[in-house]
Amino acid sequence: MVALGGMPFLLGDLDLLKVTAALYFAGFVMAWDAVSGYTGQMSFGHSAFLATGAYTSALLNAHFGLPLPVTILLGALAAGLLGLLIGLPVLRLEGPYLSLITLILPLIMLQVFIQFSDITGGESGLLQVATLVTGIQDNYYVAFAVFTCILLFLTVLMRSNMGKILTAIREDEEAVSVSGLNPARFKIFAFTLSAFLSGLAAALFAHSTVGSASPSLLLVLTVNVELIIAAIIGGMGNVGGAAFGGMLFYLGREWLSGISYTVPVVGLPFDEVYIILFYVLVVVMLLALPKGIYVSVVDRSSGSALESIFDNWLGFLTSLRG
């Protein structure tokens, strides 16, 4: 944390912008993890909440001239409300059904956005979004504050009884209802909270110098896959794991896209090459470390770290031979 706070003194402007964007992304991942990692209700469509927060705030600010702090809060509330409305019917569904319907949600939204292109800017998104603060360092500190607040809030929440109940729902929903608690209520609470936090972080992201309100940044299918991959790589159902996975995923991809420009492959589009390389790495990581790096290595409380990472690799290597 101290290292993250001191980043502006260590890094150049360009790198600082990357870390700023990574902090927002880690915020999205933590918000996603609060429902999907903890309760096991896999959402493949959290980008719908990201987009709701960002677009609501940006549009209210541009069309009605409301001050940014107000519109950002309204954006977050709109995302939370959408989460509640979607969560009520959808959380009754199990496993693959839940995955499929949440996957559909942002696709419907994108179609609607394209339909009302004159307001939403269609596929290119909103071009002129006001910024909350100017200056690269100031923007970094806002992102850092957002990241820290979400991290602290979720850590405290998940260490309370609430966190235990949510984890219990993932492990054995029937046991939770047998002990007199209504799992549906807690799932809907977690879903709504997660949608609210996603909308909040995305609205702040849209009003920063590193982001804007556009489908490619906040709505398309890839965004959802990236959130899930980052959470799995970090370790699902663990606030620190989600934060770590988000930073690692985003910065890892940035780093990889940086070095690929020096690779002397003539006639190939570099963007595509590094993306392929990156996705292959992701598949290898998903197979090798299903519990996530953070949970396996950093978070010592959940078992002997080096031993479990060794076991995972050993298992992976034997499975390759078998």
Partner: peptide, 8 residues
């Protein structure tokens, strides 16, 4: 993991 890996 299957859903994520197949999509990747």
């Amino acid at each position: 993991v299957v859903a994520v890996v197949t999509l990747v």
